[in-house]
Amino acid sequence: MKNKVGLAIEELHRAESDLAAELLRASDRHKVGHDIFYLGHDLARWSEQHVHKLAEHGRNYGLDLDADDSGLMATIRRRGAELAGRRHDPGLLLLKDLREIHRQAAGVSLDWEILAQTAQALKDEGLLRLSQECHPQTLRQLRWANASLKTNAAQIMVTP
């Protein structure tokens, strides 16, 4: 049992870390779209905090997860390298990035659901509190990606 929960925490830790990296990467790539730039950073901070809290709670399940952003930076570098050399219409690239953020945030959201259900079954109050604290922020990240995509899509798509 403990092992499975540990795996779920580890998986969410990785997914939050990836989401933070994705937000920062999109943010830096769309610096000229200033709201994406600043909000990307603000919203990545939530995921970074979640990563930290998951690492802390992971200890109860015998996990040794990165609490800081050293793993995060490595992920950003790796992803950055993957992209080198690609060329896109910057508008379409923005839509693609927002779609990716939305997809990842949706995954994170489901992972939090799993943890919350598990915590209730295990009566692990700490874990339940953690998911109640963090999950709403994931949902806000998700809604932001959706809203931002909606705001930008028309102009990007109809412009010749």
Partner: peptide, 8 residues
């Protein structure tokens, strides 16, 4: 709207 993200 969300006061932080601006999402409606």
């Amino acid at each position: 709207k969300d006061l932080v993200t601006g999402a409606p």
